[in-house]
Amino acid sequence: MNVFRLLGDISHLLAIIILLLKIWKTRSCAGISGRSQVLFAVVYTARYLDLFTSYISAYNSIMKLVFLAASYGTIYLMFIKFKASYDHNHDTFRIEFLILPCVLLSLLINHEFSPLEILWTFSIYLESVAILPQLFMVSKTGEAESITSHYLFALGSYRALYILNWIYRYYAESHYDVIAIVAGIVQTVLYCDFFYLYITKGIYGQ
């Protein structure tokens, strides 16, 4: 563990908490893409199956459970509890165009052709594009509530911090994982436009 990864995980946890609070407090999921949340639930489910097969640390296991519970909890709030506030009309990104290429790519480019490894690789590829429906929705509505933009800033920062973690691990531990690094860079690049807007003028209330 290093400070970059710890800050990254905290940023990730913060993003998920901000989202849950936003939906719970405002009792509305307006401006939030349910499709992206579904993709995140698929990402964590496919990646954290090793929760039952390999124990790394209490921290690792607890965080995996928190991320799984929070992502399914968000889906419950969006599609069941506060279903009336879900903005179907603006959440229209075709997620099959994200899932299928990630399935194919994970079968073609992976470290090992085993079920757990393919699922992990699929989750890495899918996570890199999972935010697209949300960014697409923000661009369609032309604005985002301030709390939603803070959520996106924290979520985008988490993988950017992981890139620093990978640089650190390359030099300090002679460790690197090309698949995670390339997907992580793609994921962070997708936020660049949003980061620019967030930092220059806070995209809310545009």
Binding site: R5, S54, Y162, Y176
Partner: peptide
Amino acid sequence: KRTKSAKDEL
């Protein structure tokens, strides 16, 4: 030899 797997990460 550089190790490959990043499975200890979230």
